[in-house]
Design a binder for these strands. Structure first.
Lengths: 202, 202
DNA sequence: CCCCGGCCGTGACAGATGTCACGGCCGGGG
DNA sequence: CCCCGGCCGTGACATCTGTCACGGCCGGGG
């Protein structure tokens, strides 16, 4: 009995190449493909596969958001998150969203098929080095408001704009921003944004 | 007689998947793979393939730099650039570097094999929509110095740091930066950096 | 109950940033 | 030859940023 798979990845060439790779395995069967988060959600609900393979970076809904919604709506299959970026925060978010596997696109292609088989069998699959990095990093030191303000700052707006968008006083925004910069050890707003994103805290 | 190919792409899983895809075609033969720009250069020089397929975003040397060096050192084969990002400036740079084909990873996987065959036959392969966008955009309005200063500004340093790195006076750096911000219609240094990168002018 | 921490705001300050006007040095083109 | 434009620099100015000190409002925990 073949493992039934839905695969979501926005870059057509990459998606089709991965499908070609998986189709070479006689015990794996790709039953549907998706190019966006919304499609991934629809396809997974429609086909109820044994394993959903989700890229994180997709237009619309991210793979992590899709995983979270599938998980909380009682999806019975396993979820494998695949991503380009080696950000420990992603691992944490993926696990919180109910994923059972987490792979980097830097890994050998054979690992994907292996991971699919293992999660289908009920195991968890996580690169040990990544898991260690995620643990070593700890949680975000930022409060909710600070994260929110920093996120808003990511679009290169002035403090006044951010304040207007969040319905806050400019002074408050500056204070939150200053706190975030301090906590992250950055020297700029821009650097703070970049560091927080890099750690997956945004 | 099969078309001999060297393929360079930093993400192992994607690279191996693409190779698997190409190996399904009886008239194509992947003779070597590379995960970095330097490897790509070495492998291409060693194997002298009919076609070199180069990703742009790679550690070390970018695919465009590799193409440029191959081209100016008299490489006899054809070069196809493949990239994730839809930046018209990339197309311009790729063409200037001597590429004969330019593909986005958003394109169908079948296009890759088709493009390889066509460039091997001496044709040029460029997505018409992308070519139009590149033409519509025009050249960079920035002078050499402005581009250089803006590039240095991308790492979130202060003006003083940039001035030190480029051996310039802080006032001059501010002037160049100000000019760049004006020309690009940005409201920040950060926004200017982002816009220039987005257009491929950096 | 009181204290603590998150959150919101104000006021003040130093320093960084962006803009402008101005001048000098060069090399190329009319 | 002179003019123009790129490049480098200075000085001055208004504004924006980042930091600090301070106070008030709340909700949860000891």
């Amino acid at each position: 009995m073949a493992v039934r798979i839905v695969i979501a990845e926005d870059q057509t060439m990459v998606r089709q190449a991965l499908v070609a790779l998986l189709e070479l395995e006689p015990d794996l069967e790709v039953v549907a493909q998706a190019a966006t988060g919304d499609e991934a959600l629809a396809m997974t609900r429609k086909h109820q596969p044994d394993v959903a393979v989700l890229d994180i970076e997709m237009p619309g809904r991210s793979g992590i958001q899709v995983a979270s919604q599938l998980h909380s709506s009682g999806f019975g299959g396993a979820i494998v998150i695949v991503t380009t970026f080696d950000r420990p925060g992603y691992l944490r978010a993926a696990m919180a969203a109910g994923a059972r596997g987490f792979l980097l696109k830097d890994a050998p292609a054979a690992d994907l098929a292996a991971a699919i088989r293992r999660v289908a069998a009920g195991e968890r699959v996580v690169d040990p080095a990544l898991a260690a990095a995620a643990l070593a990093e700890g949680d975000s030191p930022l409060t909710d408001r600070e994260s929110e303000v920093l996120t808003a700052a990511a679009s290169h707006d002035s403090i006044a704009d951010i304040a207007a968008r969040l319905h806050l006083s400019p002074g408050t925004v500056r204070n939150h921003l200053s706190a975030a910069i301090q906590k992250l050890g950055a020297r700029n707003r821009a650097e703070a944004v970049q560091m927080a994103q890099q750690k997956g805290w945004l």
